[in-house]
Design a binder for these strands. Structure first.
Length: 697
DNA sequence: TTTTGAAGTCTCTCC
DNA sequence: GACTTCAAAA
């Protein structure tokens, strides 16, 4: 290697010797896995079916590279979640020792963040930028919208979330903004010129406020790679090998980044399963994986189709389900695991019965010796577990919910963070705006004029103290100024600093919470939790960036730092959050047409196909037991009970059903099937009584 | 200009 | 059911 460590040793020229890790790869991997793990230089596409040992193969590949002399810090491992990166690196560590700790791993966004802090200044991006999450971005869109005076007309102007969605999609997919509006929001076509102006203002505003949104992280990374040859080789030159997990869920912009990073050596390994692509709403396209061989000439393709996870019966059902999908890398998973029970298709009368069935069955499995942690209940969207959560709480069964956690999006949490963010970046308009609106007596108009005053004073924080609010807001303004002053003069950094700052903020903010909400307690508890998390971070900058980039996927992740997962708890998860995981027993609930697939996805064939893949992901999470449950009557659990969904999910078609065992709960035709119901709860079911008022007697 | 109450909108998935 | 938007009152 040269002294700058950049020269790549042509691996294929080196003699294959017993691995330095002391491992006999051939004995521990199957032939396909071995071929992938020990592939030399050049592009490699691993098409890895569910449960085929994908992570294992990737870990061994890292070990192989290190064995053959690639320095760990020159390997970049891009994964989809922090959890995946962590798991892979710790498994690599077990395999090859502490050297693997130096492998760089993380999500695309987190890696972008790291590179931008380091190389951004060379391209005019300040080192101390703040990261906006999705909600912040939408808020800034709203500020732009107000500043430009859009939406005053009679016809409805797009909501800020819509504005952000179109923008984000454009950045991530490269599709022209006009086309996105035409396809997805035809009723807003007339506003296209306004969209354009608004996005220009938004972009300028971000720059002036030193703010960077999620999409910018990727976009700026790509631009750094394309801006100047010197910069590009500095950045791309950091790594000799790049490995990407879950490649089917990357988008066009991420593929562009990958090309830029690999341009000097084409040592790219991507792993993915086109049958599990479930993130198109975020711009992901299975074209990335289908077209990879064309993008990287000379690609070697290895297919892993032996499944080590599930019983043949579960695999049979899953294979049948996915067989109808359109374009894909054809592969049918197989296994030599012993035969077992067929997956269950359970028909419940309604949601309460579905809930009781699932809970009863979980308790049975638990009594048979399966840990709660090895059981999961999966659903299409976070709200679908509401009924189940109540029942679990009543029966004192511990559970942990993944996905759909809105902790960081909760207004009170964002409020507290806004204080810190203003200290961090005095130009953070989104956070200033948020703080100002908290003060009684200050509304949009006053907030805007305060912002203008601040902007005019070059965001000098002293200018905020000089701002004269309307009389009724004087007192609140004064105490905010005082609080910010206290926070600024806080003593030097120490470990408890961020938590202490939050404590200061709460001397003012807690009163507002009590004032504003009918039930302040849970919200205050959230703030306690936020404080606890903060204690784990050395400084404010790290804390704020980490929160934006690595939001915890379960509430327990917060407490988790020390307490960890000692206690045994059932997992409730959205299918999206369950990706890459596996359990002994899996329940897929609310498999009802209209819920899963969701009505929204039935508009286009592509969306429907993605829902099918989502169902496939759900089913293939199961090792030994799989139950698909559907209630015959799913009411719109809210007002306007005029719609009720009754049909089993279309994905469980006759062919799929033929591979399952059908269980009908308490149906009128008392089949030979076991009826597992009969609750121990109250004799009178109030909800059923209420429903009785509207339905048949 | 802010606040308040009523009507209206839309339900997801995540970095 | 939660949140936004709109119109009228303080």
């Amino acid at each position: 290697m040269t002294d700058d460590g950049r020269t790549v040793i042509p691996l294929h020229e080196r003699v294959v010797s017993p691995a330095a890790s002391g491992r006999d790869f051939a004995a521990e991997l199957n032939p396909d896995q071995l071929a992938a793990a020990t592939h030399g230089d050049g592009p490699l596409l691993i098409v890895a079916g569910a449960g085929s040992g994908k992570t294992r193969t990737l870990v061994y590949r890292v070990a192989h590279l290190v064995d053959r002399g690639v320095r760990p810090e020159r390997i970049l491992l891009l994964t989809f979640t922090r959890r995946a990166a962590h798991e892979m690196l710790s498994r690599a560590e077990r395999l090859i020792g502490s050297a693997s700790r130096n492998v760089h791993g993380g999500t695309f966004h987190a890696t972008a963040h790291r590179l931008l802090r380091r190389f951004g200044p060379a391209a005019g991006l300040p080192r101390d930028f703040s990261i906006m999450d999705q909600g912040d971005s939408a808020d800034l869109m709203q500020i732009s919208r107000a500043a430009l005076g859009f939406g005053a007309g009679a016809k409805r102007f797009p909501k800020k979330e819509t504005l952000h969605h179109v923008y984000s999609r454009h950045v991530n997919t490269g599709i022209a903004m006009e086309d996105i509006v035409r396809d997805e929001y035809p009723r807003f076509i007339e506003y296209i010129p306004d969209f354009t102006r608004l996005y220009a203002d938004y972009t300028l505003r971000k720059q002036e406020r030193n703010l960077v949104d999620y999409d910018d992280l990727l976009l700026l990374w790509a631009m750094l790679l394309e801006a100047s040859p010197e910069l590009a080789s500095d950045i791309a030159g950091l790594y000799d090998h790049i490995l990407v997990d879950e490649y089917q869920d990357t988008n066009a912009l991420q593929a562009r980044i990958l090309r830029g990073m690999a341009r000097m050596h084409s040592n790219v390994t991507v792993v993915g399963d086109d049958a599990q692509s479930i993130y198109s709403f975020r711009g992901a396209t299975i074209r990335n994986i289908l077209d990879f061989p064309a993008q990287f000439p000379g690609t070697r393709v290895v297919t892993l189709d032996r499944n080590y996870r599930s019983t043949p019966q579960i695999l049979g059902t899953s294979n049948t389900l996915i067989a109808h999908a359109g374009e894909r890398f054809a592969k049918t998973l197989w296994t030599d695991r012993a035969a077992a029970e067929r997956p269950l298709l359970v028909t419940a009368r309604d949601e309460p019965q579905q809930t009781r069935y699932v809970v009863d069955r979980i308790l049975e499995l638990h009594e048979e010796g399966i840990a709660l942690r090895s059981i999961a209940v999966l659903f299409r969207a976070g709200y679908m577990s509401a009924d189940l959560e109540i029942e679990l709480a009543n029966r004192k069964i511990p559970f942990e919910k993944w996905g759909g956690i809105k902790f960081l999006e909760a207004a009170h949490v964002k409020d507290v963070l806004a204080f810190l963010r203003v200290l961090e970046n005095p130009r953070d308009e989104v956070s200033w705006y948020r703080l100002l609106l908290l003060l009684p007596g200050i509304g949009e108009a006053t907030a805007r004029s305060a912002m203008e005053a601040l902007a005019a004073a070059a965001w000098d924080s002293a200018a905020f103290g000089g701002f004269v609010p309307p009389p009724r807001a004087r007192a609140a303004h004064a105490s905010l100024v005082a609080l910010l002053g206290t926070l600024r003069s806080a003593p030097e950094a120490d470990d408890a600093r961020v938590a202490r700052e939050i404590g200061h903020v709460r001397t003012m903010y807690d009163a507002m919470v009590r004032d504003r909400y009918d039930r302040p307690e849970p919200r205050l508890a959230d703030l306690d939790q936020l404080q606890t998390i903060a204690a784990g971070f050395p400084d404010r900058t790290t804390f704020l960036s980490a929160l934006a980039l690595e939001p915890p996927s379960a509430t327990q992740d917060f407490a988790g730092a020390s307490a960890d997962s000692e206690d045994d708890a059932l997992v409730l998860s959205t299918v999206h959050s369950a990706k890459g995981k596996e359990w002994d027993a899996v329940f897929v609930i609310s498999a009802v047409d209209g819920l899963f697939p969701s009505t929204r996805a039935l508009g286009s064939d592509e969306d429907t196909e993605e829902e099918r893949r989502l169902m496939y992901v759900a089913m293939t999470r199961a090792r030994d037991h799989l139950s698909v449950v559907h209630p015959l009557n799913s009411y719109g659990s809210q007002r306007g009970a005029d719609y009720s969904l009754t049909q089993l999910s279309r994905f469980v078609d006759p062919e799929v059903r033929a591979t399952m065992q059908h269980v009908a709960l308490g149906s009128d035709d008392r089949a030979a099937e076991p009826v597992l119901v009969e609750q121990r709860g109250p004799v009178v079911d109030l909800r059923a009584l209420l429903r009785g008022r509207f339905g048949a007697v």
